[in-house]
């Protein structure tokens, strides 16, 4: 038995195991990548919108909107699987926003919809490379990315 044959066999075994590992992890890594990216983009969208609101800027999103009088900050972003509808995996992202001394508005308030729509727009951009229109429809309908659908909601809390 030649030495070359032995090396080849070991190499085939090692590469074979690596191949199996890569193949088995690929779907998981791919999904995790999508979820990580969506969470990151939603966080960036929330930070962007809150930064401008805290600087005193207002938006034409809706006339009836209550703006911050204290400094608001993004405390956390959570992502939760909410089942499968029409072959789409539904994920709900929740932005937790601290409103300082202001009374926390409801998630369904216009300011909540606005922040959610901006975050959704960021997710859209993250996967498509261009922006869409920030409006209440975007907030309500969420954004579809290949096999996934993301909804962003904002939960306000004092402090």
């Amino acid at each position: 038995m030649g030495e070359k044959g032995q090396v080849s066999l070991e190499f085939i075994l090692v590469t074979g195991v690596l191949f199996i590992i890569v193949i088995s992890l690929f779907p998981y890594l791919s999904q995790q990548n999508v979820l990580n990216k969506a969470t990151t983009m939603a966080r960036d969208g929330g930070i962007y919108a809150l930064s401008l609101l805290n600087m005193g800027y207002t938006t034409s999103f809706d006339q009836d909107i209550s703006y911050p009088t204290d400094k608001w900050r993004l405390k956390d972003v959570e992502i939760a699987y909410a089942g499968e509808v029409n072959s789409l995996k539904i994920y709900n992202l929740t932005l937790k926003v601290g409103t300082g001394g202001d009374d926390p508005p409801s998630s369904e308030s216009n300011i909540g919809k606005f922040l959610g729509a901006v975050a959704t727009n960021y997710i859209f951009y993250g996967f498509n490379g261009y922006w869409t229109t920030v409006d209440s429809n975007l907030w309500a309908n969420g954004v579809t990315i290949s096999d996934y659908k993301f909804y962003v909601r904002v939960e306000f809390e004092s402090g």
Binding site: T15, F19, Y125, G126
Partner: peptide
């Protein structure tokens, strides 16, 4: 065998890099 693995690894690398670039 090596080519197939290379393609898989390259694919993963591209996915990760694309994500990082757009972010």
């Amino acid at each position: 065998q090596i080519s197939l693995e290379a393609i898989m690894v390259l694919g993963l690398t591209i996915i990760i890099l694309t994500s990082l670039v757009s972010i």
